[in-house]
Amino acid sequence: MELLRNMSLFVEVCKVMNFRRAAESLEMPSSTLSRRISKLEQDIGLRLLHRTTRKVELTEAGQVYYERCKRIVDEANLAHEQLGAMLEQPSGLLRASVPVDFAIIYMAPLLAEFTALYPGIQIELDMTPRQVDLVSESVDVAIRMGTPPDSNLIARKLTEFKSQLFASPDYLALTGMPEHPDELKHFDCIGFPKVDKWILVKGEESLAVAIGGKFRVNNVGMMKRLSVLNQGVIMLPRSAIEEELEHQQLTPILENWHGLSLPVFALTETRLLPAKVRVFVDFLREKLAYQER
Rank of each mutant, 00 (worst) to 15 (best):
L40R: 07
G84I: 05
V139G: 06
D133I: 06
M28A: 01
M127E: 06
C69S: 15
Q131E: 14
A112I: 11
A22H: 03
S34D: 00
L48V: 01
Y65S: 04
F114N: 03
T32D: 06
H50G: 00
Q89F: 08
S97M: 02
I72W: 12
I44A: 04
L46K: 15
R21Q: 13
L49W: 02
R68S: 14
Q63M: 11
V100S: 10
Y65D: 02
L125G: 02
E57M: 12
E27Q: 15
L125T: 08
V64Y: 10
D43Q: 14
H50W: 05
Q82R: 14
E67A: 13
F102Q: 01
V100F: 04
V56C: 01
V132K: 13
S136Y: 03
D133K: 12
D74L: 15
K70Q: 15
T59L: 06
E24L: 12
N18G: 03
V135T: 15
P90V: 06
A79G: 11
A96T: 09
V139I: 15
R20L: 07
L40W: 07
P119E: 02
A79T: 13
I104A: 10
E113Y: 06
V141K: 04
L110S: 04
G45C: 08
I143A: 02
D101A: 07
E124M: 14
L111K: 07
V73M: 08
P90E: 07
L87E: 12
L49K: 02
